[in-house]
Design a protein around this nucleic acid. Structure first.
Lengths: 215, 215
DNA sequence: CCACGCCTCCTCCCAAAGGCATAGTGGTGC
DNA sequence: GCACCACTATGCCTTTGGGAGGAGGCGTGG
């Protein structure tokens, strides 16, 4: 491993700097793109399709909880995302992995742990911090919602994200460059999968997830 | 200012390292005592009565929230304590200062902010982020939403609550024992007051408040 | 008393949402 | 090749949502 291209999305400049320091010891040529907010991370992922990895803070401004992760996974399925988070309870870890994260690094980790995690993910494996792996019991309601969310296709995820922003079908259609009829089809599919019967209820359900994440 | 002795109490090695890096540029002779848990911080304060400052993470293992700060202030009244925290809402900041902290540094601060804060406190002043001392308001976006929410009449509040549960106008009308036309009128009034143009957006806006409450 | 705000209800109207059926395209896996 | 799925799209239909505008009853405070 001689060259690396890594996107770091974290709103703490100091922590970001420390990460950069750590990562730069891992290869002879390390390119790092730093993002302080989520929109910048999206932009970076778009502009650097050859990136090897993204380190994503769960608590980014501009996006609440896991929806950012979902958005990233939906739009850039090829980009491995490792969650970096201050909260590292097993529920948060597991949910991150269920939503497609390739690893989880608690912010309380030491340098070696972080390097090890990055190496593991770059090798194509999934990194999970040691203490976890136990299936601690969770609110069954949330688990059920997460299960349903997992069944959404990438495009449906994008549509759901836009629903959660309060956009009209028409606006979503314009944003995604498809017809309104298509969006309606997606929305119908989403409502079915989430087992609700209106867009409003869908965003409420999504909101519960975000609530559970920060709580 | 040529010599400095600072105690850093934070359970994140990476962040601690970054702090050390930053602080060492502030004087020719900087002695730093690092503590990964609260008991070590107490011990350090005891062993280094000549320390100029302590940087204390609010979320330390071994102590919950502000009790650590209280303990420190009680036992080492002469040692200025600056809180370093990831959560930086005005309530947390205010409470920290009320409990005797000499300053508050959000973890999202940049290097310069941190250096500035430390310098301010070393000069005997109190450092408060948001540059207007003590009157740092909450997220203006949230304040604006709350202001709007306050203008809702009782009945409108009930209707909004039901909107947030994903009910249809018809269902709300049934629940409240009035006609659907009335509900429509209420909903229209709510949308006006919240400055949105769909029930979905209203629910989203309400969700933001709930998020801010638990976070 | 009168004005004002709140709650209630109405009508007309149009836009948005959502169900249902159908179908072409492209990719993946067997 | 065939099956399956995601994505796209169209058409038709009903229900829901929301704006505009008006209007009557009711209680409080000037």
């Amino acid at each position: 491993m001689q060259t690396l291209k890594i996107i770091i999305a974290d709103d703490h400049p100091l922590f970001r700097g420390a990460l950069v320091q750590t990562l730069q010891t891992m290869a002879t040529d390390v390119a790092i793109i730093e993002c302080g907010e989520f929109s910048a991370a999206l932009k970076a992922a778009d502009e650097h399709p050859d990136a090897d990895l993204m380190l994503l803070d769960l608590a980014m401004p501009g996006v609440s909880g896991f929806s950012g992760l979902m958005t990233l996974r939906a739009q850039f399925a090829a980009l491995p995302v490792v969650i970096v988070s201050a909260t590292d309870d097993s529920g948060t870890v597991r949910r991150s992995l269920e939503l497609g994260a390739s690893g989880f690094i608690p912010k309380s980790s030491g340098l070696d742990d972080i390097r090890n995690a990055v190496k593991t993910v770059l090798d194509g494996d999934v990194f999970v911090p040691g203490n976890d792996s136990g299936k601690a019991e969770d609110d069954p309601v949330l688990v059920e919602i997460l299960d349903r969310l997992k069944t959404l296709t990438p495009q449906q995820n994008r549509v759901l994200t836009m629903l959660a922003e309060g956009l009209l079908n028409k606006q979503i259609a314009y944003e995604l460059g498809v017809s309104e009829a298509t969006i309606k089809a997606h929305v119908s599919a989403i409502l079915l999968k989430l087992n609700v019967d209106s867009r409003t209820q869908a965003v409420i359900k999504l909101g519960k997830i975000n609530m559970a994440m920060v709580a």
